[in-house]
Design a protein around this nucleic acid. Structure first.
Lengths: 208, 208
DNA sequence: AACATCTGACAACGCTTGTTATCAGATTCC
DNA sequence: GGAATCTGATAACAAGCGTTGTCAGATGTT
């Protein structure tokens, strides 16, 4: 219970040990939260998978929900950062930006399917995760509509909000289906098709 | 436990009593499954809300999951039937069919928000419901791509599958946001905007 | 060496869940 | 009237959950 000091152990400092345990717990939590649907994230299970005991769980997290939130936040930041920086780095044409963003989004999601499942998979049924996912959806939607206003030079409007929500939901469903094998196409085809739809919606939204 | 006979009671036949209790349970289940997110569907709760006791639950359902499935099936059939018949009844032009289908879909969902939530709301976290929802999504997607092939006279393809999944996911997200008040527009505006996006995707898909 | 802290395994508490059983009293059939 | 059945309430069981506490032994400090 020492709030202040932790002496070194096994050659590593107290803070390092605690940080490593926390990282192990988040990794195990990502395994469970983004793994097979049956694997619920329980304290006992996540500790077993991390090779730790319950005591060390409560050393880093106030409760189960705090770990779920931490895992989700970690994934959102990782994926959003990858996609956003790609958009910034792309050429000034809107199509190039759309394609670059989609490409990196798909890559992040396909590279570690746990990320995709945590973000999108409908079969993940943690209540807190669901609420956070709803929030992150509108977060992504706002990000998207902001970029759209910036790139297309259009004003904010309810119609734009709707289009952004539609795109986010459509992408989520599409990526979920693709990850589950329902859609059979290569990563490149997936990106190309999504970009086409994306542009079709944007072009409708711009002039219309 | 009488498997065969149930005599009349309170003026109604045994079969009628049993059917009415089953209906009460499904209605209560719809209340819980499509209600506030905190309201989990448990056997005790659904029985309390139906004004029955656990014994009558297992009289009509083998277990909790069977009720969940029955409620979901009921909603899917109701909504799909409403939208499909509207599409059939509409004029032969594709735009008219799209608008009619969307209109009735939105009406079914707005008229009884429980329906919309059971079908779409991401914050509903029943595991079985999630799996069934995934299946019903591809069911709706197939329905949609079938109609598209019929109306637009195009062939089946992976790209069409993707577009159908995208549209289903986009609609789900949009309707969820609208039901939750995130999108502020009238029912007519909602239908009109969704139809525009729909048509934009279809026109992209049709000519290729 | 002597003492303080860290570690890991495990028991335990209170709670909710699905499911089944029990039992007194109301209603219907013969 | 008497027997069979339906009703409704409630208790019970085993299982899993989050969370907290206990305790022997390993590893550090002085």
């Amino acid at each position: 219970m020492a709030a202040a000091e932790m002496r070194t152990y096994g050659g590593v400092s107290g803070a390092d040990r605690k940080a490593e345990r926390r990282a192990q717990l988040i990794e195990a939590g990502l395994d469970l939260l983004g793994g097979a649907e049956g694997d619920q994230l329980t304290v006992r299970r996540v500790c077993q998978r991390a090779g730790l005991t319950a005591r060390y769980f409560y050393e880093s997290f106030a409760g189960r929900d705090e770990l779920v939130a931490a895992v989700h936040e970690h994934v959102v930041q990782t994926v959003a950062a990858a996609a956003l920086s790609a958009v910034e780095a792309a050429g000034p044409e809107s199509d190039a930006k759309i394609r670059a963003g989609l490409e990196h989004l798909v890559r992040a999601v396909a590279g570690d399917p746990r990320h995709g499942r945590v973000l999108f998979s409908v079969t993940l049924t943690d209540p807190l995760l669901a609420r956070r996912r709803l929030e992150s959806s509108t977060f992504f939607a706002r990000l998207l509509s902001g970029k759209a206003r910036e790139v297309y030079g259009i004003a904010d409007s309810p119609e734009l909000d709707l289009a952004a929500q539609f795109v986010v939901g459509g992408l989520a469903q599409t990526l979920t289906a693709w990850l589950s094998g329902t859609l059979t196409m290569t990563e490149e085809e997936l990106v190309a098709e999504c970009a086409k739809i994306f542009i079709a919606i944007a072009d409708r939204e711009g002039p219309g």
